[in-house]
Structures are given as C-alpha cells and as structure tokens.
C-alpha cells in the first residue's frame, strides 16, 4: 500500500515536472551571463578552458566553499571511523602476484597522471577535483593490492592543512594587491602555454593536493575502522 502511494506521488511529481519543462525550449541559449562569460573569459582570465576560468577565477570563492564542504565530509568520516590497518587484526588473504606487482607498478604512473590533470587544468579538460580523485584512487589501489598496507597519517594531515592555508593566503594576497579576495594578481602570460593564466595553475595545484589528501583520508578511514 505504501509502495503504491509512493508510486502515485512520484508519478504526479513527474507529470508536473514534465508539464513545467515542456515550455522551456531546449538547446537555445537564453542566458546573457553565459554568453558574456564565453565572450570575455579568455581575455579576462587567460585560460583557454572556459570552465576552469569560471570555476577558479570568477567563482573562486565558491570553489573554496566546495573544498571546505569536502573537508567537513572527510572530518565526519574520520570521527565515525578510526585509522587502523585493514581487517582490524583479522589476517587478510594475500592478493595474487599479478595484483600485487601491478599495484606497485601502476601506482607512480597514476600519481603522475593525476598531477598532469590538475597542472594542465587551465589548458585541457579536468582540474583540481578530477586530479585529486585520481590521486586518491592510486592510494585506494595500494590498499586493495597490498594486504596490510597502512597510509601514513601525519604527512596526509600536513598536506591537507598546508594546502588549505595556501589557498586562503593566495586569496588574501589578491585582496591586498588588487582590492578583492582571490584577485588574479600574477601576469597572465600567453594563452595556451603552461605558465599562463596567473594564479589559476597554482590554485588548481593546491585544490588537487587538498582533494587528493581528503579523499585518500576518507578511504583510509573507511577501510580501517568500524565493526565487522
């Protein structure tokens, strides 16, 4: 009975949404803001990737908020779970030779690829969040491939704190130099070169390391703690 009522309610909501969205033309740009960003972004920010220009330059304060939200999520997992070796004392069966060697062999390359993604965030698709997720996946691979592996806790916490401080410090330097928080105070350079777009590559490196440390901490907490 409850399932039937839920189904009827969801159907009503779906019909209402369909009727409301039916009148909006799809695929036409009616947003003046979007057109303005597309026209001015490369000149303003120096980043050929317009998404990066918006996320780290025009909306950099929102990005700081996003990183903070991720930090509190990581903190919540850390309060629920404890940082211990996997299995909680239970002896784990060893992984096969291919998995062990493959994990050790692939780990530096995945780290390098994550670094490439966030360093080139202003030139190619990707950026800090994507690169950080790739780096955390590399540590997850170590946990899966090598039984009994335990990530060192202090360097991770140090990286997370230092990158957070650096983000805010760059913002405050921009406030002192240019008059508003997270102002792009470095020279923009020539478009399409690696060292261009002012503070955007620096900010993306900071975000990438911070997101990578936070997600790796979530994985380490999840895999170690809790009751069987």
């Amino acid at each position: 009975m409850r399932a039937f009522i839920g189904f009827v309610a969801l159907s009503l909501i779906a019909v209402g949404l369909a009727l409301a969205l039916y009148h909006i033309p799809f695929g036409q740009d009616r947003m003046d803001v979007a057109r303005d960003y597309l026209a001015r972004s490369v000149r303003d920010t120096g980043a050929p990737n317009v998404v990066t220009g918006i996320v780290v330059n025009y909306r950099a304060l929102d990005t700081l908020g996003e990183v903070t939200v991720l930090f509190s999520a990581s903190l919540g997992v850390g309060m629920l779970m404890t940082w211990r070796s996997p299995g909680g004392g239970r002896p784990l069966p060893g992984a096969s030779l291919i998995v062990r060697r493959g994990a050790g062999f692939l780990f530096p390359f995945i780290l390098l690829f994550g670094g490439y993604i966030f360093v080139h965030g202003h030139l190619t698709p990707g950026g800090g969040f994507q690169g950080g997720a790739v780096i955390a996946s590399a540590f997850l691979l170590l946990y899966l491939g090598i039984p009994g592996y335990l990530l060192a806790r202090r360097p991770l916490a140090a990286i997370e704190s230092l990158t957070g401080i650096t983000f805010v410090a760059i913002g405050i330097i921009g406030l002192a130099v240019g008059g508003y928080f997270l102002n792009n105070f470095l020279p923009k350079g020539s478009v399409f070169s690696l060292f261009s777009a002012g503070v955007i590559p620096i900010l993306y490196m900071v975000i990438g390391l911070k997101v990578g440390a936070e997600l790796a901490g979530v994985v380490a907490n999840m895999i170690g703690g809790g009751e069987e």
Binding site: L92, P93, F109, F113, L141, L144
Partner: peptide
C-alpha cells in the same frame, strides 16, 4: 585516458571482496 587508467579499480574492489581481502 581516465577510464583506461582507473576503470579496473572498481572490479578489483569487488574481486577482493569476494575473496574476503578488503
């Protein structure tokens, strides 16, 4: 390239679960 590098990790996680290795 992201999928090519990371696509196997989910499968590896399920496989390690099935042999009680996580």
């Amino acid at each position: 390239l992201v999928y090519a590098v990371l696509g196997f990790i989910g499968v590896l996680a399920v496989a390690r679960y099935l042999e009680r290795g996580v």
